[in-house]
Write a protein that binds this DNA or RNA. Structure first.
Lengths: 137, 137
DNA sequence: ATTATATTCCACCCGGAGGTGGGATATGCG
DNA sequence: CGCATATCCCACCTCCGGGTGGAATATAAT
């Protein structure tokens, strides 16, 4: 019941950028501000760029910006890019097929939570997270 | 959002034993019936024995039985033994402290699901799972 | 030109989950 | 006794997430 560290990093970086008015952010800035390993984050941000979540600019004062309006970047988009959504869609006991007609022993109990989480990650956007009362990123 | 493979194995074995009237089950039987690697399962069952979830008997026709009434073996007990409960209690973004007073940007959204899952694993017992309409283990 | 940044290689390292194989010992049923 | 089982030890293996280090190239601001 946890995100990959890389997903945590990606979410925190994007929230940081969103909160700071989506100014251009260098990897160095993000790495220092959020205490994320520089080299590791470099690769991660590059992946987010390739997936179209952020845009990059080279050269001095270059860096990353969020590519889309904040309400159009969903948690599920980020998670999907970083770690994939398999773990959020699979059967809790690992059965290939598991649905109402052919349930595993935990299907009925798990179903609601699974759907709730899926709804959450598809509904919550960067805007929501940036607007939260949280003072920590 | 997934159990360790070992937790899946443990749950499936215990449900299998529960459904089959809690007869003595050898590791061989469980391994064959549920398609779980024999040696791996041997260690896992031994751990469940050490934790008091099952009792073991040696010799021919020996094996394992569930040690307690089925309604007194909770999902959380099994998960705790096999993989620990840290992942079920931790902040979704990985912050050391994260609560209503000092929330992370996802705390409010995640809180409900986290509590729901915790309630589920502490409420659901082997009896519930054995009683389910599932024909698969 | 210098400097700061992204981008992209490559080569590692570590730890943990999952899995395999051998062998030794104890225990108990037939 | 022989056999089947648990128990325990050891030594591996693979894969993957996380992380580090070096180096080269491209791009753009100053």
């Amino acid at each position: 019941m946890r995100l990959f560290k890389s997903s945590e990093y990606a979410i925190r970086c994007l929230v940081y950028m969103a909160v700071n008015g989506n100014e251009v952010c260098s990897v160095k800035t993000l790495s220092d501000a959020l205490d994320i390993p520089y080299k590791f984050l470099g690769r991660l941000m590059s992946r987010l760029g390739g997936a179209g979540i952020v845009t990059s600019s080279h050269g001095k004062h270059g860096g990353y910006r969020i590519a889309r309006p904040l309400d159009q970047v969903r948690l599920a988009d980020i998670i999907d890019i970083v770690e994939g959504l398999e773990n959020y869609e699979r059967c809790i006991l690992g059965f290939e097929t598991c649905d109402d007609e052919n349930p595993c022993p935990l299907h009925d109990q798990w179903k609601g939570h699974k759907e709730g989480i899926l709804h959450m990650i598809t509904d919550v956007t960067l805007e929501d997270m940036a607007r939260s009362d949280s003072k920590r990123i």
